[in-house]
């Protein structure tokens, strides 16, 4: 089975950028208008799963600053990009989690085939701080429990596919896979939704074997950094495979036929249960016009693979 979706935060239009800078009176109506536009683009592209473009989110973690015990901290670079996020400090129990992500999404606008993107617990703990959970494992597992509450609420609201973005697992040279596995078990045990652990900002070629052992439905890759030649060395039998073949870090549009050929090749080599054609990460690294072109091209590629 072949499907498609996009990963992460979408870019704001020039009009919306200006409105957020000036805190314009019509900001909420602009957000709504633009969300609808992006949902229409995803529909036009015939993506298998549709997501909220997360236009109000300043970064993928920011909604969690609404938790009582979480404080905003300093700006920090997002890995090696020229974009920054604000570090959060988790200074107390996370009992009030459960509705943070859901309440930050336009759920009523989404079709039934809906997906959502959340940072995985390992990445979350890697890039934030805590004065309460001082050991990495303790912090990661506390985050995993918090995220599970969030995910349960999302699944109840009809989200069928949960993307867990894991750039730290890709970027960090050393990863404690024991902690990752324990955290993922908390997230996925008995969950009635598909879960894709998605890697970008680093080459995970040498980590794929260990990642295949994670209790998730499938794995996703940024193919600009983890080459297809590395992925196809592995069998994905019993797992789903998400191929982030559309590059959100360059305006250059992918060649449709080249991508279709690459994807057909990887399907035949890895034999996954299900394949997803995706962006490699957030489209917010492109201006809106280019992001829209990429979404449409993503759809064309996915349809090309289906018909091949």
């Amino acid at each position: 089975m072949i499907s498609s979706y996009t990963v992460g935060i979408y870019p704001r239009s020039e009009e919306l950028i200006e409105a957020t800078r000036k805190n314009s009176k019509n900001l909420s109506s602009l957000y709504l208008k633009e969300k609808k536009e992006y949902l229409a683009v995803q529909k036009r592209a015939k993506l298998g799963y549709v997501c909220d473009p997360l236009l109000e989110w300043d970064d993928i973690y920011r909604p969690f600053s609404k938790l009582k015990s979480v404080k905003l901290s300093a700006l920090n670079r997002i890995y090696e990009t020229n974009t920054f996020y604000r570090r959060l400090s988790f200074d107390g129990p996370l009992d009030d989690a459960g509705n943070i992500v859901k309440s930050s999404l336009a759920v009523s606008l989404l079709p039934k085939n809906r997906t959502v993107c959340i940072a995985d617990p390992y990445t979350f703990a890697d890039v934030h701080l805590s004065t309460k959970y001082r050991k990495r494992e303790e912090f990661t597992l506390a985050i995993a429990k918090m995220l599970r509450k969030e995910i349960d609420a999302l699944v109840k609201s009809g989200f069928e596919l949960i993307q867990l973005v894991a750039p730290s697992i890709a970027y960090n040279e050393k990863v404690d896979f024991g902690i990752v596995k324990n955290a993922m078990e908390i997230i996925t045990r008995g969950l009635k939704a598909k879960t894709i652990l998605h890697f970008y900002f680093g080459d995970v070629s040498k980590k794929i074997e260990k990642l295949l052992d994670m209790p998730v439905s499938g794995l996703g890759f940024d193919t600009t950094l983890t080459p297809l030649s590395s992925i196809k060395k592995h069998s994905f039998s019993g797992k789903s495979l998400a191929v982030g073949i559309v590059n959100s870090y360059n305006t250059k549009l992918e060649d449709k036929q080249e991508c279709v050929t690459d994807l057909n090749n990887i399907i035949s080599k890895t034999k996954p249960d299900e394949i997803f054609v995706t962006t490699n990460f957030d489209l917010q690294y492109l201006p809106k016009d280019f992001a829209v072109r990429k979404i449409l091209r993503l759809g064309e590629i996915a349809r090309g693979v289906r018909s091949a």
Partner: peptide, 16 residues
């Protein structure tokens, strides 16, 4: 190409 986020509501004009 257009503006791309630096952080929050701060953007820079990025070129191709």
């Amino acid at each position: 190409a257009g503006r791309v986020r630096s952080w929050d509501n701060k953007y820079y004009n990025k070129a191709r």
